[in-house]
Simulated assay, not measured.
Amino acid sequence: MPFHDERGQVAVVEYRPQWPAEFELLAGGLRDALGDLAFGVDHVGSTSVPGLPAKDCIDVQVRMRSIDEARDAPLLAAIGFRCRPEPWNRVEVSGGRQCRKLVFAPPIGARWCNVHLREGSGPNARFALLFRDYLRTDEDARRAWGAFKQRLALSVPDLLEYGQIKAPATEVLMGAAERWAAETGWSAARAA
């Protein structure tokens, strides 16, 4: 759920070439705040895929050695990030496993983003990298996924409903991504 200052409606826009530079600005601040606790900061999600329409919200994955809300939330709060309170922003199922995570909203008035803290060795961190790399590589899948998201946003502009409908479609997309990974020898270790 968005905080009071965030958008509750979905708008999927054409790819914007400034998204990678905006990610780099966010990543630098996160690296400084988390120091050695983070061993990777990745641009993930649709804004990380050149040519893919997306919500104008930068998704950042911070690969952590471990997740500790009592330690991590104050470090990000010190630079204005707000820990999202919903239960689904603390645990996600990936690869049949429950994985700990924390999701943070940007400081009030800052660039719209979601910061996902994940254990770096978890299947959910791998999932985010595979999603990105598969769509960067497969033009047909990228075009179809972008068209699907644009049509969905026009039909279902509510952020929560949009996400609930998109989730099972993402699983279908990721089935193709897993086949691609097996065929090409893709690995998260090399992708990060």
Rank of each mutant, 00 (worst) to 15 (best):
F127V: 00
A176H: 13
P123L: 11
S121L: 10
G122N: 02
L102A: 05
E183P: 07
E119Q: 12
C99T: 03
Y134Q: 01
D32E: 15
W112Y: 11
E119T: 09
L159Q: 04
G95L: 02
L135E: 03
A21H: 09
E119S: 06
Y134V: 00
L160R: 10
L26C: 08
R31Q: 13
N114Q: 15
V44C: 06
R82N: 02
A78I: 02
A189Q: 09
A70S: 13
E86N: 06
G45A: 11
R132Q: 06
R118V: 10
V12G: 01
E24S: 14
D56F: 01
G40W: 05
P168K: 12
E92T: 13
E161V: 14
G35E: 12
W186C: 02
M1C: 11
A77Q: 09
V62M: 06
R90T: 10
A54K: 09
V13Y: 06
Q18L: 10
R190M: 07
G122I: 06
G51D: 11
E14C: 08
L26S: 04
S94H: 04
D158N: 13
A128P: 01
A110F: 00
C83K: 04
P85N: 03
M1H: 14
A191K: 07
L154F: 07
L152I: 03
T137V: 04
V12K: 09
R136P: 00
F148V: 06
V49R: 10
F148G: 08
R16E: 13
G45H: 09
D42K: 08
F148A: 13
V93Y: 04
R65N: 07
L76Y: 06
K166M: 06
D68C: 08
A147L: 04
A77G: 07
G120E: 02
A177C: 05
D56S: 12
P17R: 07
L26W: 04
P17Q: 09
A144L: 12
R142A: 00
L173R: 09
F104Q: 05
F131A: 00
K149V: 03
E178R: 14
G29Q: 13
Q164T: 09
L76G: 07
A110S: 15
E86Y: 03
A141N: 08
R31W: 10
R31N: 11
V93S: 01
V172D: 08
G109F: 03
A144R: 14
W186D: 05
C57W: 00
R118P: 00
G146P: 00
G29I: 06
E86I: 12
T47I: 10
C99M: 07
L135M: 04
C113R: 03
L26F: 07
P74K: 14
P74M: 14
R179W: 06
W186N: 05
A38S: 12
A192F: 08
S187W: 10
R65F: 15
A177P: 05
D140L: 14
P123H: 10
H43M: 08
F39K: 05
V156A: 13
